[in-house]
Design a protein around this nucleic acid. Structure first.
Lengths: 351, 351
DNA sequence: CAAACTTTGGCAACCGGTTGACAAAACCAA
DNA sequence: TTGGTTTTGTCAACCGGTTGCCAAAGTTTG
């Protein structure tokens, strides 16, 4: 009552299918069919109903619709840290793909905590048709557990039995290592991200493999916090290490590392070459601009959303297992090296 | 039927209050009360019900709850352009404030188009308890129209009869103009953003006012696109204008302008001083790092969400008009000048 | 023109909670 | 023990859609 009053105070209650039914002189169920089941009602009644709906400015109540069907036309996206610009493009890609298909994106952040992440996931689980986890900090088992309830797609991580979107780091890493070798660096270093980050380990594996293949020395530093400050903290260790070709887990760390080294008087790229990962917004603003292994972040976000929708479609209509097409699409997500000023001919003598 | 089967295939249907009722040996409505109306049920039954709920891993279905109450515990946030890093702090602030209060954030973007914005607003209107519009491109009247249906709070714009969160540009602008004057600039320029941007006009008004007060010449350029490229496009006009102290609508434009001028051989800050707005991520990466009028973006987002919730509370319990407290909070959102390297002593002679 | 078949629309149950009205039970004082 | 009050739980309606089932209306066919 109170609510009703309040509702009427701020607005006239929105039109329902019953209002339409009354206006068009048909039953509510006919209205429902006219609006959702194409071809189920005669063209004549269809028109009457559509006119009435337009006249009343009808907008279906998504909750009433979701209740019996369980479908919400909403996909949740949980990122580990909204601050990280790398996710900007992921979010953007997912949002674009979602609204293009008349889906809505629900955003949540886990603040780099597995516990918060699980909480957020559970909180929105009931509200969405599926969940995208960007660089989740949860354990594999927990992710599989979630995936039992609703479609789950993981970004930047491989989890068995769960849909994953991971750009192929190989091409970018290969280019980066070759690039550094060509510039005269014989000893490389990898500045790792958090231990919980699957992607950090993955990048390291790829780099190490490539270095072995090329006969280069490479050491791993870290784990570190995947932020500008986290990069700064690694500067001293890197400087003492003897390594001169540095690849960082992500651009933020690379930028921090470069800033700290420069403020200690080190010349980049003469003394150290630095390469990041992701090609985030602003990575070309630095002096020198950052060389980086570019990830197709936006496409990653869009692909993840497409995958969710495909899983959804498959669970309704189990016949078509067209995952192959999507796998193919995901496989096209390759990384590539963007060479800018932070990597260059190694010439410490020029001091 | 099919759905039911599908549901069971991927997961056991989640527990309902009826399951709890059966397990605890009470009526479903008692369960509902126990879970939502503290004190309405005896301690004994309360405990029985809570135990049963815990045992069944109960999680209320938000749709079933939203249907009769109309409350969704979700707030929509529509930004004009997800690409713009300025919004990320706004999003972050709103997200933080939301999840702290057990609310969820629904994100949508309008791609700088009034039409898309209206569409997005209408689409999510039915799903959320309130909407935050960040730098909306809609007309005032359209915004008021939306506000009739659900609480609306507008960021970076003043709209009468609607809740607004606008940081006070005055202190930052005053500092910036004085700063430029002190550096020896006698002729200033403002590089405007889009015509549809209220904030762009607002900043211009403030700057012009301050310049008149100080007896400085100032011209307005634009309108322009509020992006790095938009800034680049203004470079030629600025260079010919004779103005040497440049304030840009936002950091993106400032960065673009600076890049373009530098690539034409212009020395910053010797020949031109450049000041942006917002202090976005990366604005300190440039060479020279960008001087900028810092906006409390994160607080703005958080305040907007708090305002929405306050309006919501007020509409249920109309007695308390504690808007004053919130106004006070919003008023604390002041801008301030961050002086970095892109502004400095005007010394064209040093050429 | 009737029989057989196809469309089309109505009825009613259901999704999972919330809530007003009311009755049963428990409690209290006299 | 009784009458009055308060607490506690039940009943049933409702939110606004969806959908299986069925009957009425319309169409085709022999």
């Amino acid at each position: 009552m109170l609510q009703r009053a309040a509702k009427q105070r701020t607005a006239q209650s929105p039109a329902t299918i019953y209002d339409i039914a009354a206006l068009a002189g048909v039953n509510a169920s006919t209205v429902s069919r006219a609006l959702t089941k194409p071809g189920r009602v005669s063209a004549k009644t269809q028109k009457k109903i559509e006119d009435a709906a337009a006249q009343l400015n009808y907008q279906a109540n998504p909750f009433a619709r979701a209740l019996p069907t369980g479908k919400t036309n909403t996909v949740g996206l949980i990122v580990s840290d909204i601050t990280n610009p790398a996710y900007f493009d992921v979010i953007r890609g997912a949002e674009g793909a979602a609204s293009a298909r008349d889906y809505t994106l629900l955003l949540a952040e886990s603040a780099e905590s597995a516990q918060t992440e699980l909480l957020a996931a559970k909180r929105i689980m009931t509200t969405v048709d599926g969940i995208i986890l960007a660089s989740p900090r949860l354990a594999d088992e927990q992710i599989r557990e979630l995936a039992k309830k609703k479609p789950v797609v993981v970004i930047n991580r491989m989890v068995e039995e769960v849909g994953c979107v991971v750009a192929d780091v190989q091409p970018g890493v290969t280019e980066a290592v070759r690039h550094l070798a060509t510039l005269g660096h014989e000893s490389l270093a990898y500045v790792a991200g958090p231990d919980r980050s699957w992607m950090s380990g993955h990048r390291w594996d790829s780099i190490r493999g490539r270095c072995e293949w090329s006969g280069l020395r490479v050491r791993k530093f870290g784990p570190g916090t995947p932020t500008v400050d986290g990069g700064r903290e690694m500067a001293a260790a890197i400087r003492e290490s003897g390594a001169t070709g540095i690849i960082c887990y992500n651009d933020l760390m690379a930028i921090g590392l470069m800033q700290e080294l420069q403020s200690a008087g080190v010349r980049i790229p003469a003394e150290f070459s630095i390469v990041g990962f992701d090609n985030i917004f602003g990575s070309d603003f630095t002096t020198p601009p950052l060389s980086t292994v570019k990830s197709p972040l936006r496409e990653t976000g869009a692909t993840a959303l497409t995958l969710i929708l495909a899983e959804l479609a498959a669970s309704i209509e189990p016949g078509r297992a067209d995952d192959s097409a999507l796998r193919a699409e995901a496989a096209k997500l390759a990384t590539e090296l963007v060479i800018r000023g932070s990597s260059g001919q190694h010439s410490p003598a020029a001091l």
